[in-house]
Simulated scan of single mutants.
Amino acid sequence: MESVLRAASALLGTTVSAPADLGGSARSTVLRCATGDGGSVIVKAYKEEPEALRCFTAEAAGLALGAGSGPRLLAVDTAFPLLVMEDLGTAPTLADVLLGDSADAARAALLAWAGAYGRLAAETIGREDELAALRSRHDRGNQRWEADPWPAEAVAGLPEALGVIAPDGLEAETASILRLPDYPVYSPGDICPDNNLLFGDRVRLLDFEGANYHSVFIDAVYTRMPFSSCWCVFRLPREVQAEVESAYRAEVAKGHPELLDDDVWREGMRLGMVAWTLDATSALVRRVLTEDRMLHRTRRPVPTIRQLLRYRWESLLPEVPDMPATAELMRRLLAATEKWDVPSMPSYPAFGG
């Protein structure tokens, strides 16, 4: 802790003290600290291990590229490694509002969230070389930034632990998710509800550890599933979901006008849902073979992992009528887990769940 404070003080040229631990992760320590001029800053220090260093480089570069969308980047110490950021203060997150009791507030927050990411994506189209240069500035020399292998890993990791046999033709069908329509957009990476602070109708984004360019549909499908990789998952009213998806699409299409083509959008969203559903299946099934678990260790209300998995499989079925092997896999997974006997996914509390 003392070394973190000394490094931050040297960077800013003023005393940094009175650290309050904001939680961080296995990769980092995040502190709210007082400064010598009476203000406060956020100090984020990363561990000296490959994944943490990769996250440090991505976040330093991502905050710089997406300036204004997240906290202002005040200083970087690549050798430590450490970031000093603007303290945005306290504000409710999108997760807080969705788990609250106001449908109007939740709808407004969702639309603000979708608009914020759509605008950021549109405004940063074509700046891949700039992000690469920012990475180089803060790269310790041991990161690799090749194309994200995630969709391939999602397919390769499909579990057999439930005794479900893959239908004939599945491999050929799921290969299509490796060809997600390109339309690259910049994203902070983890766009889940708890990484978004709400200030009236403005959203400030947190967590740029996964900042990168990838297919627009990896992010866009968060508006439909909803929140593809997150713990804060319940059902959205159909009309609200449609509004949120339209809000994101309208903004991002300002940079990629081709996304206004319904055929392009429909195919990309469908493949995005397949990719994220297979990813959840690969990542989560083995964790709940013997007993169910909550999706978050401390937050409540929250669904269980078994609830989430069955919800994902049920939701994908109507989206893949012309992918018979994928649809059959979903049916087999649902049949194999009927014994789980979990409730259907309720609506978000804000919408009466």
Results as ranks from 00 to 15, higher is better:
I125A: 11
E51N: 10
F234D: 02
G272P: 07
P321Y: 07
R224G: 02
V221P: 09
T29C: 12
A220Y: 08
L236A: 09
A108L: 11
S9P: 09
E319A: 15
D129F: 02
V302L: 12
T290L: 13
L31H: 05
K47V: 07
G68K: 10
A152N: 01
P167F: 10
R266S: 15
A64P: 00
V288A: 03
L259Y: 03
V30E: 06
N195W: 06
L317F: 06
D168L: 12
P149T: 13
L198C: 13
A116Y: 00
E209Y: 03
A336G: 06
L308I: 01
V76L: 05
L289G: 07
D129R: 15
G38A: 04
P71N: 01
S187D: 01
E251S: 05
W113S: 10
E267V: 12
L94H: 00
S347N: 11
L205W: 07
G210K: 12
K44S: 06
L53D: 07
A52Y: 02
A8P: 00
L329V: 05
T14H: 01
R144Y: 09
P318T: 08
P343N: 02
W145F: 15
G66H: 02
P257D: 10
D292R: 13
L259M: 07
D341H: 12
T326C: 12
A325F: 11
V185N: 01
A335F: 08
G118L: 08
K254M: 12
R32M: 08
L63C: 10
A147F: 09
F80Q: 04
L308R: 15
V264F: 07
R306P: 07
L88H: 03
G23F: 04
A325T: 09
S9G: 14
D263H: 14
T298M: 07
P343L: 04
D77C: 07
A154I: 02
A116R: 13
A112R: 01
P349E: 06
L120M: 15
Y183D: 01
R306C: 03
